[in-house]
Amino acid sequence: MPSETPQAEVGPTGCPHRSGPHSAKGSLEKGSPEDKEAKEPLWIRPDAPSRCTWQLGRPASESPHHHTAPAKSPKILPDILKKIGDTPMVRINKIGKKFGLKCELLAKCEFFNAGGSVKDRISLRMIEDAERDGTLKPGDTIIEPTSGNTGIGLALAAAVRGYRCIIVMPEKMSSEKVDVLRALGAEIVRTPTNARFDSPESHVGVAWRLKNEIPNSHILDQYRNASNPLAHYDTTADEILQQCDGKLDMLVASVGTGGTITGIARKLKEKCPGCRIIGVDPEGSILAEPEELNQTEQTTYEVEGIGYDFIPTVLDRTVVDKWFKSNDEEAFTFARMLIAQEGLLCGGSAGSTVAVAVKAAQELQEGQRCVVILPDSVRNYMTKFLSDRWMLQKGFLKEEDLTEKKPWWWHLRVQELGLSAPLTVLPTITCGHTIEILREKGFDQAPVVDEAGVILGMVTLGNMLSSLLAGKVQPSDQVGKVIYKQFKQIRLTDTLGRLSHILEMDHFALVV
């Protein structure tokens, strides 16, 4: 994948999101292997301009796509893939009243899908469409860049269908997702969380590099694949309309690839034109409109599966009536509230959605109805927002919020430890010299600072030695090549209790 991002070429006709291997024109390309080798690009942008032909009021008969309808489940399912879809609609009884809503608040519980998330729908649909058009064949390999849930859905379907599955996901995604993927037989590649989507090191860039190296491999490409919004247009939206008897006044959905909100909203605009569509985008993402909503100094966020630093091709923002931004604290607070007060075992993005819903639905009156999409299960986040310690460490809970008995030293300040200034190293000294210094002084790690004293990161003896043994660096290389740029900081005025929580999850903390 090139470091400079080429513009994806656009073909003359058809839909841009065809499933299957992508040609340089962004659509299915038939021909000899030699032709494909000559024409197939190194990668295709996940934010390529959409060429979708959908228009409100256009006859369904003019759609270029294969459409399906929700099917009634048999008493005995032939395999677990038949437990994807037909998820329950559940009334939220307490939270709406707590925040003064007059309307009825309903939750579409997508964590009841077989793999635990709304992404099971698009995973199965992308595979079925690729099999139907002859792209996927027995023994082929599926590769997908994902925040985890699409990966789980694909790995689940691949396990049943017999495909090899490789999932490329950023490091910030939970260990629970990784464990589930491994249990399903998927191979996992992790990428830096802070890598831009168009960087060769991003999950998108690495996935395309693997595709170019592995024979008979395919990126189904949830960011561009029409099967993504079509899955929701054909099934999720129809289920909502049936469950609500066609009567709903507002739908609120958090947005990642945009397939969920695009597919549902398009069908609702056709069948229930008075329904307002509300999009939820986390602070630090750029999906919301108008652009002024996205202006923030924050560039990272903890909530998973929603928000991006690019506009995915499948996201149709014209069908969203209003956007709201959400933050991590309210997302996790509301997710825990949904679990504790409503018994809905949902993930953090569901918290984002409901946090926005109780604001947006203030305009609705008694007798009206708001539906929220709860995308995934708490299963993926047992060591994250479900953990009091994690919430404390991230600053989303305060010590006084917890009532468990603490040891005698818990409320003492870090400054009472009488710490001395640490050994520091410059980023320009060599790895070999740094190892000598650390061994001589008896230290395992040291902060790396520039000549102005600005902290650049941390270097550890173990990481340097393993990097040297693996051949990633040489003793003569500058130590700046092996620094940890993500590390926890703590102030002298913070409590030892807070430091204790940090050290339970990290090997060190830097006192500043």
Rank of each mutant, 00 (worst) to 15 (best):
Pro2Cys: 15
Pro2Tyr: 07
Glu4Met: 04
Pro6Met: 15
Gln7Asp: 09
Val10Glu: 09
Val10Cys: 15
Cys15Pro: 02
Pro16Arg: 02
Pro16Lys: 11
His17Gly: 14
Arg18Gly: 10
Ser19Trp: 13
Gly20Cys: 02
Pro21Ile: 04
Ala24Gly: 15
Lys25Arg: 09
Lys25Tyr: 02
Leu28Cys: 08
Lys30Asp: 14
Lys30Cys: 02
Gly31Ala: 09
Gly31Trp: 13
Gly31Gln: 02
Asp35Trp: 02
Glu37Phe: 11
Ala38Asp: 10
Lys39His: 02
Arg45Val: 07
Thr53Pro: 07
Gln55Pro: 06
Leu56Arg: 12
Pro59Ile: 11
Ser61Gln: 12
Pro64Leu: 07
His67Val: 12
Thr68His: 12
Thr68Gly: 15
Leu77Thr: 02
Leu77His: 04
Pro78Ser: 12
Asp79Ala: 02
Gly85Phe: 02
Ile95Phe: 09
Lys98Ser: 12
Gly100Gln: 15
Leu101Cys: 07
Glu104Thr: 04
Leu105Ala: 07
Leu105Trp: 02
Ala107Leu: 02
Ala107Gly: 13
Cys109Asn: 10
Glu110Leu: 02
Phe112His: 04
Ile122Ala: 05
Ser123Val: 02
Leu124Ile: 02
Leu124Ser: 11
Ile127Gly: 02
Ile127His: 02
Asp129Leu: 05
Glu131Ile: 08
Asp133Tyr: 14
Gly134Asp: 13
Thr135Met: 10
Lys137Pro: 07
Pro138Lys: 10
Pro138Gly: 12
Gly139Thr: 10
Asp140Leu: 02
Asp140Phe: 09
Thr141Ala: 12
Ile143Gly: 06
Ile152Gly: 04
Ile152Leu: 02
Ala155Glu: 02
Ala158Phe: 02
Val160Phe: 02
Tyr163Gly: 02
Arg164Trp: 07
Pro170Phe: 05
Pro170Met: 08
Glu171Phe: 02
Ser174Arg: 02
Ser175Gly: 06
Glu176Arg: 04
Glu176Cys: 02
Lys177Ser: 05
Asp179Leu: 05
Asp179Thr: 15
Asp179Arg: 02
Asp179Gln: 02
Val180Ser: 08
Val180Ala: 10
Arg182Leu: 10
Arg182Val: 02
Leu184His: 06
Leu184Arg: 05
Gly185Arg: 10
Ala186Asn: 08
Ala186Arg: 04
Glu187Ala: 08
Glu187Met: 02
Arg190Gly: 04
Thr191Ile: 02
Pro192Ala: 05
Pro192His: 15
Thr193Leu: 09
Asn194Gly: 05
Arg196Leu: 09
Ser199Leu: 07
Ser199Ile: 07
Pro200Asn: 08
Glu201Phe: 08
Ser202Cys: 04
Ser202Ala: 08
His203Trp: 05
Val204Cys: 10
Gly205Ala: 02
Asn216Gln: 09
Asn216Phe: 07
His218Ser: 02
His218Ile: 10
Ile219Thr: 02
Asp221Arg: 02
Leu230Tyr: 09
Ala231Ile: 07
Asp234Val: 02
Thr236Asn: 13
Thr236Asp: 06
Ala237Ser: 06
Ala237Trp: 04
Asp245Thr: 02
Lys247Trp: 09
Asp249Asn: 04
Met250Thr: 02
Met250Ala: 06
Leu251His: 11
Leu251Val: 12
Ala253Val: 09
Ala253Ile: 02
Ser254Cys: 13
Val255His: 06
Val255Ile: 02
Thr257Ser: 07
Thr257Ile: 04
Gly258Asn: 07
Thr260Arg: 07
Thr262Ser: 11
Thr262Asn: 07
Gly263Pro: 05
Lys271Gln: 10
Pro273Gly: 09
Gly274Cys: 02
Gly274Ser: 05
Gly274Leu: 08
